[in-house]
Write a protein that binds this DNA or RNA. Structure first.
Length: 394
DNA sequence: TCTGGGGTCCTAGGACCC
DNA sequence: TCTGGGGTCCTAGGACCC
């Protein structure tokens, strides 16, 4: 059987590259997309010019400013990035019978058996890169390998604007040279834990039996690492998630201890969550609250009810109950979040407490609000309690 | 340095049922 | 009387990724 051919395609410094393409005067500059300097927030994306000064994604924005004060700091324009991403993904999809988008800026393409149609994979890769460059002005990196996991590592290794193919049989040689942290799925904690076991390289990791790894890292973790170290697809990219969840959260500019302010912001988050459920025709019977306190300690609480959640008021009521269980009313709060878990597409029968027409009635009201919001884009449509100025406002 | 926002998956304990 | 084995669901926390 012919070797499987998987592409992992990854747009380089995506948000920053879109900004540069939309404003050519940014060419050659250190672009840093993310939170406003001086605020609580992080870098979402930065150009390679900025990386030379040590700026990285997820770095606190203040730290990025210290390292690169002459950088161009820009806010995130998610709508624009989604638009450009859509153009690129559409092009990629047209080549691949089996296509899996992983995130806004990366995707897998299964091109096994397309040699006769497209020629050698490396040639096809170059053609795709050129087409994307001409069509959108963006560069991307492509990893080609016999499975998705290796393809992902390959694109990572050849960034930016690269192309790298790993053939079957070359797995060991490729992995040999990689630092442990480059393995997808190995983060800080796992690296530390392995280091305590005397494991600091992929080669050393390969010296451990599957049993030993499972004993040290747990059943699933051990099996994962055993395979990852050998370039065997460890099952890292499931095609369909087991369950879905959806959430909205916000970090306060400075910590808040006012129950009134927190309650009002929670209502707004509940509205956002309910809006998204309805817009995508989804149902959920589980609500969760997330709290991060002044000291960055984080706690969550959740509750499952016997019916589908039908309105943002109901969501808000449940969330306030959870808040009562988790917050003493005076500890300063840094972040609050609200979410729905056990999310399914609607059309499932309504169960339990609420009569069907009562559920339908409430849902109709929410749907009307949703439609209004969509029509009046940019207009703030919100509950009266959110419009009044907060009593504790300056 | 002082840590966003949106997700998925795993673990472990307890409740409950057969 | 003192104890099984499994399965499923729920909950809280944590690791990891983009």
């Amino acid at each position: 059987m012919a070797e499987a051919v998987l592409f992992h395609v990854d747009l380089d410094a995506f948000y920053a590259s879109v900004e540069r393409r939309d404003d050519p005067s940014l060419q050659g500059k250190a672009i840093i997309v993310g939170a406003r300097p001086g605020s609580r927030g992080v870098v979402s994306s930065c150009s390679y010019e900025a990386r030379r000064f040590g700026v990285r994604s997820a770095m606190p924005i203040g730290e990025a400013y210290r390292r690169c004060p002459h950088g161009v700091f820009l806010p995130v324009r998610m709508r624009r990035y989604l638009e450009v991403s859509g153009q690129v993904m559409e092009l990629l999809r047209s080549y691949a019978p089996v296509f899996q988008q992983l995130s806004i800026d990366e995707a897998f393409m299964d091109l096994s058996g397309t040699g006769r149609l497209y020629g050698p994979p490396e040639q096809l890769g170059e053609r795709i890169k050129q087409q994307v460059r001409l069509g959108t002005g963006l560069t991307l990196s492509i990893g080609i390998a016999p499975n998705r996991y290796l393809a992902k590592l390959a694109s990572e290794a050849c960034k930016p604007d690269g192309l790298l193919r790993i053939h079957g049989g070359e797995e060991a040689a490729f992995l040999e040279g990689l630092p442990l942290a480059r393995l997808w799925g190995v983060g800080d904690k796992t690296r530390q834990r392995l280091s305590e076991l005397g494991i600091d390289t992929v080669t050393a990791l390969r010296g451990l039996s599957e049993e030993a790894l499972c004993g040290a890292m747990g059943e699933a973790g051990g099996r994962y690492l055993y395979r990852a170290a050998r370039g065997i697809e460890p099952g890292a990219f499931s095609a369909e998630p087991k369950s879905r969840s959806l959430s909205s959260e916000m970090t306060f500019e400075s910590d808040v201890a006012s129950a009134k302010t927190i309650g009002r912001c929670l209502l707004e988050l509940c509205q956002q969550v309910m809006y998204r459920l309805i817009k995508d025709d989804l149902s959920s019977n589980t609500v969760f609250l997330k709290l991060r306190l002044f000291d960055f300690s984080t706690t969550t609480a959740q509750k499952t009810v016997g019916h589908w959640l039908a309105s943002s008021e109901e969501l808000h009521k449940l969330v306030l109950e959870l808040l009562g269980q988790r917050w003493d009313g005076s500890t300063p709060v840094r972040l609050i979040g609200v979410g729905a878990a056990n999310v399914l597409s609607s059309g499932h029968p309504v169960q339990g407490e609420l009569f069907e027409d009562e559920f339908a009635r409430r849902r109709k009201v929410e749907e009307a609000v949703t439609r209004l919001r969509e029509r009046m884009e940019g207009v703030r449509l919100t509950k009266a309690s959110l419009i009044h100025p907060p009593e504790d406002a300056p």
